[in-house]
Amino acid sequence: MELWIYTSRRLVQIVIIFFVILTVLFLLFRLAPGDPVSRMVDPNLTPEDAQLLIEELGLDQPVWIQYFYYLKNFLTGHFGFSFHYGRPVVQIIGDRLPNTILLFTTSIILSALVGIFLGKIASWHKGEKTDTCLTVGALVTHTVFLPWLALIMIWVFAYKLGWFPITGMISEEVWLDPDAGLWPKSVDILHHMVLPLTTLFLIHFGSYLLIMRTSMLETLREDYILTARAKGLPEKVIRNHHAAPNAALPVVTSVGLSLAFSINGGALTETVFTWPGIGRELVFSVSHNDYPLAQASFLLIAAVVLVSNLVVDILYAYLDPRIRY
């Protein structure tokens, strides 16, 4: 019950923060050099269409009225039209969001689980070869420059070995085939997903492994571990049932703290692998001066960050019985 109160309080907070971000973005937009109209309105539009769009966005009004137009349009989902795609921006980012969430959540969950598992093993074999290999491996993969790792993955596994497609998320021959059912389509997406997922996984699991290892070693010195030993429990039960659930809590915290880092990495990975997600759309729109699309992608990413932070906090409260908000 208290969790619901906490969650709703956090949601209100998120709305306030989001409102601040919106306002700052509006101010920067007005402060930036150049003409606001030409930023928001595609120069290729017919004068009539352009005039309509200007009126809808309120760009012919005084600045403070424009602000209300801006808020109203945001709330009703009017982000303008993408210069490049010539479609409403909302449609484009709506298409991209599931792809980003698929890659992002899978990679975070996978790397956290594997990090926890390997960190547990490393701590159990502290000082042995297994531990050294895992720790050094984690340190190295954790600090590798992500876009470079992505390029190397493509070079080795897609170009040299040809095991995976070089870029993209789907192959046209599968998706245009009218007979193809859900199964071949899913397999196709998975096939495309392997390399970007592996890249993100390799970058992230290392820090979780290191945190889990340290946390596990600290937990094993706790009194309740001594109790578990005295109870005559087998070592495996002590490790998995008594130490690991406690030791994994700091990992969950660090997943939350490193979300910003993960989002950066997600945008880079999507760009290199041309994965049709929001991060790639942001990079693409910025380099093609497609401001309406850039603005919408940015706001959506900000929303994703805020919400996933909340999700991690709720997960933590669920895992640690001592936390009751």
């Binding site: 601040v20 989002i263 950066n264 880079l268 991060g279 942001l282 401001y291 603005q295 805020l306």
Partner: peptide
């Protein structure tokens, strides 16, 4: 707290969109 959850790279990209 707010700044901490913001991905720096993404924000810098947005600034590049605004300021060139």
């Amino acid at each position: 707290d707010i700044i901490m959850v913001m991905p720096a790279l993404v924000v810098l990209l947005m600034l590049a969109a605004l300021f060139g």
